[in-house]
């Protein structure tokens, strides 16, 4: 019977070296909030548990001019307690505050939440709306993957076996203040989302100058709604337009039915949350 092994390197370089050697035999553990349940459910077979939670160099929140960089092992609680995130990138703060529960937030990491590639990952829609990129590294190699290209399916990502996410970056532009994240779950904490929406918006004279919107739990992957965005750009916002935009949303989402909700309800709710996000942001900016 094969066994799990464990290692907790202290530097990123060590991790990359081990990944190069072990490839798919290694399973990166950051917060542990997904990996441990997977081990219990035997979803993960015995592997090398590569614990990156102790790698200090990957835990940071930095803003340099308009460039944001967040380290992969930054916890959800770190996001909440970061003054700069709260003040200048509030959409991420909103998502973090609705993430699981206070205890899980103390361990779960932003990198882990994305790498898990759940369609319901709460940090994915805001980061998609921020047009974030992932810094991905393997031994001796760095590359960047746009988050919109990262998710390939439920629990499938563009990561190679020897790669890890080391950081997330995005730019402050005229859109991302303050941004809006809305989560609909079946209870107020420890809820896996039924639908989430994240939106950033710039309005000029009641015209949509620019918009980015993403949703969770409405497709096999966290979804950027490009068609709805395009549809709204340069148009004057009014109730009729919002109704039309909702129809674009309905076309773009492709949810499943599960124990939490039916596909029809998810589809319907995606329209409602989309509208609410628009309303909230236009009220704030006007």
């Amino acid at each position: 019977m094969s066994q799990f092994r464990y290692i907790s390197p202290k530097t990123k370089e060590e991790v990359l070296k081990i990944l190069e050697e072990e490839k798919s035999e290694a399973c990166i553990v950051a917060g542990g909030s997904n990996v441990l349940p997977y081990i219990r459910d035997k979803i993960i077979p015995p592997k090398l548990l590569l614990d990156i939670s102790g790698i200090e160099e990957l835990n940071y929140i930095k803003k340099n001019g308009s460039n944001w960089r967040i380290g992969a092992t930054t916890t959800i609680s770190d996001l909440i307690s970061s003054k700069i995130i709260r003040e200048e990138c509030n959409i991420l703060c909103q998502a973090a505050e609705q993430f699981a529960d206070p205890l899980v937030r103390n361990k779960a990491t932003i990198g882990g939440n994305l790498a898990d590639a759940s369609p319901a990952a709460d940090t994915a829609p805001p980061l998609l709306a921020l047009d974030a990129g992932l810094e991905v590294e393997s031994k001796g190699k760095k590359r960047e993957i746009f988050l919109k290209d990262f998710f390939l399916g439920p629990r499938k990502t563009a990561l190679q076996d020897d790669e890890m996410i080391t950081g997330i970056n995005f730019k402050s532009d005229s859109l991302n203040k303050p941004g809006c994240f809305i989560k609909l779950g079946l209870r107020q904490a420890m809820a896996i989302s039924v639908v989430t929406v994240a939106m950033v918006l710039e309005i000029e004279e009641n015209r949509v100058k620019d918009i980015r919107v993403a949703m969770g739990s409405v497709a096999p992957i966290p979804l950027r709604l490009f068609n709805a965005e395009e549809f709204l750009k340069n148009k004057h916002l009014n109730d009729d337009l919002i109704e039309e935009a909702k129809n674009k949303v309905y076309e773009e989402v492709n949810p499943i039915s599960d124990i939490r909700a039916s596909a029809e309800y998810r589809c319907y709710i995606s329209g409602i949350l989309f509208k609410r996000a628009l309303e909230k942001l236009t009220n704030q900016t006007s």
């Binding site: 079946l186 209870r187 107020q188 904490a189 420890m190 124990i259």
Partner: peptide, 27 residues
């Protein structure tokens, strides 16, 4: 408001506390 052990043809679809949900303090 929220509790149900969902069974489909005798198969429990809510086998853990993430699917079988009970009220939290925030509810």
């Amino acid at each position: 408001l929220m509790e149900e052990v969902v069974m489909e043809k005798g198969v429990t679809l809510t086998p853990s506390f993430s699917e079988y949900i009970i009220p939290t303090a925030a509810d």
